[in-house]
Each structure stands twice: as C-alpha cells, then as structure tokens.
C-alpha cells in the first residue's frame, strides 16, 4: 500500500453560509512533495488544521497510515503552523527538550546542527529572536523529525528571498525521503522546482490534483503560470 493519506468526503463548515472545506476526497502517496495551492480563503489552512487535529471536521474522514487523526497519527505527522506558537519566555533549549520528550522521531543532534549553521544560540529565548529567525527555529524543529508526513503551512510567507532559499534548502535536505511533504503556499514560483505534485483548491473545493510533470506536458506551462490562469480574477 503506497497511500499515506486518505481523505474521504471531508467537509468543514463554520455555519450554513461559510463552508471552508467542501466535500474533498483525496489519496496522497508516500514519498512525494506536494504543493497545496489556492488563493486566500480557499480552505488550505482549514484542511491542514483538520489533518493535525486542530479542527474537527463537520463531515467526512481523514486517515493517515490507515489511522484516524489522533494520538497515533500525531506521533508521525510533523506540522509547521502558519504562525508563531512557541511562547516568548522559553529558551530554544527548553523547546528542544520538549520535542525530544514527546516525539520519538525527533533528532536533537540534527536540530542543534541546523541551529549552529544559522548561528542561532540554543540558549536564546524566543522573545529575543526576530520574526524570521523564529520561523526558522520552528522549521528546524519540524524538519528535525523523522516523520511520515510533513505538513508545512506557508513556510516561506513573510520572509526575505534569502531566508526563503534557506527554508527550501532545509526542507529538501532534511526530510525523510520515504515521507510525504505537503506544502501550502501562495509563492508558487519559489517552490515549484521542488514539487512533485500539486493540489488546487478553490472555495473549499478540490479542483485539481495532478503531477507537476503533467501540467508542464499537457498545459505547456509552469505551475505558476497555470495557477495564474486557473485563478485569474
């Protein structure tokens, strides 16, 4: 069985008028880097939160490695949220201890190595770091895990181009090759070169799930150009 993630008729509605994710069914394989693409409000973050158990679906089901979202799946899913969730008062060392204690697949050595390469002192407290550095620390924590599924929500939004390159390099060089990476972003041009497959979402609905090679061959365009065409206002 090559399937890692199975989503069946997944719906999340906050009220009758606002349906954030609408009846999505999807099967994602292992060992791929997949772009979750769509304009603002298309349901990307909602879908990601449901994968991580931060939102409860209104209808439908999610299975990761055949298991419904819960303790078992959380042990094998590494999640990078679209915001800083680590409190300012704690030091990076303490956060490393936290991750080591709770995630069996976390490599402290790998994290320290990456921090060292960025000249980030693990004794620093989160509040003393710039926004970009905080994001890098969060990414390092996630990529230091040997997870089955990496879910990265807007990992390169809000950082300068040099930092984007670093983040992408970190993702590519550190993920478990047998795992799948699901990356949500608007900045398609920056990540297109690393993607194997793409998912297009609009108004909470799945409108396309295909390989990057397919888009290039069938449409004769880059993913970025095709995205602009599909989502043209």
């Amino acid at each position: 069985m090559n399937e890692l993630l199975e989503i069946t008729e997944l719906t999340k509605s906050y009220d009758e008028k606002h349906v954030a994710v609408n009846n999505i069914s999807l099967k994602l394989p292992k060992g791929k880097i997949i772009g979750l693409l769509g304009p603002n409000g298309s349901g990307k973050t909602t879908l990601i939160k449901m994968l991580n158990g931060l939102l409860v679906p209104t209808r439908g089901s999610i299975k990761i490695n055949g298991q419904p979202v819960g303790v078992e799946t959380k042990a094998h899913v590494a999640y990078l949220p679209d915001r800083t969730y680590l409190t300012g008062g704690q030091s990076i060392n303490r956060i490393l201890n936290y991750f080591s204690d709770f995630y069996e697949d976390f490599s402290r050595e790998k994290a320290l190595e990456m921090l060292k390469s960025l000249d980030i002192d693990p004794a620093c407290r989160m509040r003393t770091l710039s926004k970009g550095t905080k994001e890098k620390v969060q990414l390092i924590l996630v990529m230091s895990r040997n997870a089955d599924l990496y879910v990265l929500d807007e990992p390169i939004a809000g950082v300068d181009p040099a930092a984007r390159d670093y983040i992408l390099r970190t993702i590519i060089n550190n993920y478990n090759p047998a795992a799948t990476i699901l990356i949500s972003t608007h900045l398609i041009g920056d990540i297109e070169k690393v993607l194997d497959e793409v998912i297009f979402l609009r108004n909470g609905q799945l409108i396309l799930y295909t390989s990057v090679d397919n888009i290039r061959e069938q449409q004769g365009k880059s993913v970025d150009a095709y995205f602009r065409e599909v989502f043209a206002c």
């Binding site: 991580n52 303790v71 949220p81 915001r83 800083t84 969730y85 409190t87 995630y103």
Partner: peptide, 13 residues
C-alpha cells in the same frame, strides 16, 4: 490560543 497549537498536536490523549 496559538499556544495550543503545540499542545494539541502532541501525541497525547
């Protein structure tokens, strides 16, 4: 709040 992102994604009940 945002701090709960860490707690609720831990492999704990």
């Amino acid at each position: 709040t945002d701090e709960g992102y860490l707690l609720h994604t831990l492999p704990v009940t």
